[in-house]
Design a protein around this nucleic acid. Structure first.
Ligand SMILES: [Mn+2]
Ligand SMILES: [Mn+2]
Ligand SMILES: [Mn+2]
Ligand SMILES: [Mn+2]
Lengths: 217, 217
DNA sequence: GGAATGCTTTAGACATATCTAAATTTTCAG
DNA sequence: CTGAAAATTTAGATATGTCTAAAGCATTCC
């Protein structure tokens, strides 16, 4: 049985190992968990003792099979709760992440099974992220970042990588909603910013910082 | 802001102060929170520093107004989540208490407001307990214990005082459901056990231990 | 190849919440 | 009213998770 804190570290390791190739560094974990490197080292020793991570001093860290299974369970719960908060309670997609950060740690297998059924076995959360299977596998999506799309291409906005309230409210104001079709009109060579046309015909400016957090297919 | 643990102590103090007149004792709290008296004393010092309880060494403890307000907020959340688990997720009333013990600590005012609306502002939880108001008042019910009912009286089962799975499953097997009408047929002078007739016409035996946990009106 | 630099780990503390054992205070019985 | 029993508090420890400061590796840049 893991504490909240251990679950959060497992999730953080999983998340960082997707972002870059190779093992996850102590400093990266310290930044993501908003702690100090020394605290991370302590926790890595503990997770290693429990055989949830592969860890050699100074060499970075990687989840074991069991560690990944647990991380995906937490992510599954997080995303199911986000669906609940949006679909059933009527929260905006910009307001659910912090509450789901708490709800994801509620311990009850039966609860997850019933919640999943009540929500009609959703495949994606309100941010377009795929919901891991009960068995602990993360579905593949094959989405690309909007920054990789060529001028003239029509694509559909499928997911966002950033969950902060500020970012999501910015998208709302820009009329960029999940599922909408967008066309890349121009790419600025200097700052890689984009001009895109939305379904409604309006033209929206997207800095590289915004575009790299938008996933399309 | 209170920790989970502090919230649980506040709830425990509230609950015990209903059970008996006068201040709550250290030992009673130790038993209810499944800790030792020494641990309770430590926590009482802390809650007293925060002015959530009135506490004088060796003299027992009592909630301040602020302490009671917080305790009732926790109880409100607990009972709303129990309603959700039964009404929306289809849990049995015998399976929800432990999950609600976790959910009651989720911190988000907005969440409670929306959950309450989603459930249609319920007045009672699945065990018949009244749900405290958003302002922090506990509604009066005026229920009596079944042990105080005279032979021949017709009463309606309104609530249960004990929430354990075993007790509630026993009631299910006996056909005693919330809202049902029961008639006291005989009271055994020796052990105070009862024979009651239910709506369906069947006769059910209830030991004093069972009857004192049944509230009727 | 050998510093200098930057990560990372260790050392030593602190806060929370718990425990056992011992000391203290209150209560109650004779 | 007084001494024993019961209840409560204090003393000293443990476990978790965090921190700062100092020391130990690793990489890289002459
Ligand atoms: Mn999220
Ligand atoms: Mn999400
Ligand atoms: Mn309950
Ligand atoms: Mn209840």
């Amino acid at each position: 049985m893991q504490s909240f804190t251990e679950e959060n570290y497992l999730k953080a390791i999983y998340s960082l190992s997707l972002r870059h190739e190779g093992d996850v560094s102590t400093n990266a974990l310290a930044e993501l968990t908003a702690t100090k490197a020394a605290s991370v080292t302590d926790m890595l020793r503990k997770l290693s003792d429990k055989e949830l991570i592969h860890y050699k001093k100074y060499q970075g860290v990687r989840l074991t099979e069991e560690g990944e299974r647990l991380a995906l369970q937490v992510i599954r719960r997080h995303r199911l709760w986000e669906v609940f908060l949006v679909e059933k309670l009527g929260f905006g997609w910009d307001a659910v992440h912090d509450i789901a950060e708490q709800l994801e740690h509620i311990r009850s297998d039966e609860l997850v099974v019933r919640l999943d059924g009540y929500l009609d076995h959703p495949q994606f959360d309100p941010h377009g992220d795929p919901i891991p299977t009960p068995a602990g596998k993360m579905p593949e999506t094959g989405y690309r970042k909007l920054t990789e799309v060529g001028v003239g291409e029509d694509v559909r906005l499928m997911a966002v990588l950033e969950h902060s309230t500020e970012f999501l409210q910015h998208l709302d104001r820009s009329g960029l909603t999940l599922g909408c079709i967008i066309t890349v009109k121009t790419v600025n060579d200097f700052d890689k910013s984009l001009l895109v046309r939305t379904e409604t015909g309006s033209t929206v400016f997207a800095s590289q910082d915004v575009a790299k957090n938008l996933l399309v297919s």
